[in-house]
Design a binder for these strands. Sequence first.
RNA 1: GCCGAGAUGGCGGAAUGGUAGACGCGAAGGACUUAAAAUCCUUUAUCUUCGGGUGUGGGGGUUCGAGUCCCCCUUUCGGCACCA
Length: 820
Amino acid sequence: MSQVFDHQQIEAKWIQKWQETKLYKTPDINQGDQKKYILETFPYPSGYAMHVGHAKGYVGSDVTARYWRMKGYKVLYPMGWDAFGLPAENYAIKTGIHPRPNTENTIEVSKNQLNKIGLSYDWDREIGTHRPDYYRWTQWFFQFLYKRGLAYKKDSLVNWDPVDKTVLANEQVLADGTAERSGAVVEQRMMSQWFFKITDYADRLIDDLDKVDWPDSTKLMQRNWVGRSVGAEVDFRIEGSAEKIRVFTTAHDTIFGCTFVVLSPEHKLVDSVTTAENIALISEYKEQAKSKSQLQRTDLNKDKNGLFTGSFAINPINGEKIEIWVADYVLSNYGTGAVMGVPGNDERDFEFANKYSLPIIFTADKEEFISYSEKIKPEKIKHTLINSGKYTGINFEQARELILNDLINLGAGEAKLSFRLRDWSISRQRYWGCPIPVLYKPKENTGEGGMTDGDWEVELVPETDLPVILPEDVEFAPTGRSPLLDHKEFHQSAQKYGTGYKRESDTMDTFVDSSWYFFRYCSPVNDNTFADPEEMKKWMPVDQYIIGAEHSNMHLLYARFFTKVLFDAGLINFDEPFLRVRHQGMVAGEDARKMSKRWGNVVNPNDVCDEVGADSLRTYEMFMGPFKDGLPWSTSTIKGVKRFLDKVWKMQDKIVDVENEKIESSLHRLIKKIGSDIEDLSFNTAVAEYMKFSNLVDEIGGVSNSQFARFLKVLAPFAPFMAEEIWQNLYHKGQGFEAKNSIHKQLWPVFDESLTVDDEVVIGVQINGKTRGEVLVDEKDNSDSVLEKVKQDEKLVKYFEGEIVKVIYVPKRIFNVIVK
RNA sequence: GCCGAGAUGGCGGAAUGGUAGACGCGAAGGACUUAAAAUCCUUUAUCUUCGGGUGUGGGGGUUCGAGUCCCCCUUUCGGCACCA
């Protein structure tokens, strides 16, 4: 009789032995070897330990990695730390403890948690974005983009907290426009910031989505985020002026309905079109708009207001004279900052026209408002033009072409794609991030009264001097300035490049750190390049990336952008980094609320491991429901999973000499099903399959040695500790542990397809589409022979009084008789 | 408002257009026990006149057959938002 499964002692033993023997070391790989690169989002060690919700995604990845190893694939399954960023810095500010020791400490704690649940990472490949050997290459990427003309500086608005005197991230600004922390009303402030020119890649970021296997909803989110719209730019001559107003429109076929033009308050032509009597009002309006934050401007509850400038424009298509207005519902940073007002087509324009009694002309033979952006289904907007001069009666699609051509011929327009995507702002006025490797050289004749941005020239820090080290002794409490600005030595050290040189004091957005980490895993110890090209050829692209749906959009977009730039530079031979993306759902607390300290519903995986064991935790998290769904934690369900594993443990004592046929065929089905379920990430049904098998063994009363061995192998990815313990007990008892004898080094058992199908099966019998009974059919049966069987069935015979009109037999599925 | 994903027993959920409710939890009854825990066995969608009827948010439709496909509606959860 075996002892009870002492999970605490046994799991600790295997964690240690697996580490000692480097069981999960990444194998050497040759190009062309069958490989799988299994990736998952790396956590940010902010100061708080992980909870079981984090564990779920990791266990799912681990099961997959273990499976592919057993299938004979070379598997890269690494882990690291997304350590820079706001959470760690805020935790530091809160506790007064410097983020570095704090981060390293959290990493230690988290690493132990991950090991405790049996995740099979190759820790030799661990990376941390906050470590100089890593961020040296984050800085290289910055310079790489800069040299390719994809990093530039411009003035841009930031959220400014006047009380805390600091720049806020969007997530720190509440919906009412106040700061989350201080409660102050957030202002918009101009600041000179670094940008990456991701808009250069807008088209490819949409088009290349066709190449990858991602959830449709995720692809759609990316498409909508980039937001390509097909339209035209049209020039409206200003009456009595040589100037023209250029507008962007996605609906140039509605141009006959254009009854006014609206400029954004920031538009450069506002001043010149404003007539003398309107100057006072308009400049006041402009001032108001300036003081409004983007949030306020967009939260105005659709109350559109604006002012007439006093000038008129000429509609190029029909020569109509229309009023030029200024309104802040038009944004300066989208399109051209000016729109043609088409109240018959656009809801906002309609509201605006109503409010100020501007004319409304309908140009579509449908009253509903229509839009042409790509997200609207084409069949919903088919219509014919009305009130449109010579184009009246023409289908809108044709009209679009005709009108555009005519506008081009008139010299008053051109076809234009527009994108919603904006360039990526990467400057952060924060301490805990990667320094931007840039120097500022003072210009010769500096102006009087302090230096402004224009008095400096940008120079890259020489590559041989990278990394620019993030100083440790920095005052990281908020002061209203980039913490590095006031670090004397940091800037002093720039003097070696020339007198008066200073360093860039902002740090990079942490999205930059995480936009290339998956390359680094291919050769994490490497001083010569961000990742060895040969190693990348062997491992990349990523075969499976598991990431939470909530925060995947931006990250995926940025990582794809980096990949495409590297591809264009000839540094890699693929232009999409993640072949397959899947999402894992969050685990909520037992009260169905988000797990957080606030609700006191956080479950620490360590506690669960201590109580019921890591195998139970793992198997339960896979069993609780569909992997991609968010589900509440359930203490009672985990007991059921533990019950199942205890049964497996007891199977050791039920090994018999006779090989039962029923168990054998059930085992073949199991091997097949577990394999396909793991590949589909359908873990919950896989676990149900194990349970069925163990129930069958219970029923039969025994299992053969060979059958049990195969069962243990397919169980190993889910319950690696128990599988290993039993495996060693049965086959290597008394021997010292050797890596090659580990169950995790065994090959996945093969199944015989013919054994997975039953010769005989009970199917449902339908009479006129209603299920009335069942009948046992076998392989040889055809429609006629089944009908004979059905007619002989006592329960069914009564339905055959009428004439049989039709018989449908789907072999081994359903038998349906239509009787009159 | 727009976009996306959902809605199936008391609960979590299962189901290539083919016998709805696999598997687990919970519950009820029983066995073992002085007793409890643990374990094991049985039952468990629902109504029923025991023939059968009704059931996958609601209403239509396609089909021999719909949880699954199509149209409309209700509702829950995510994401985005004056994008011209």
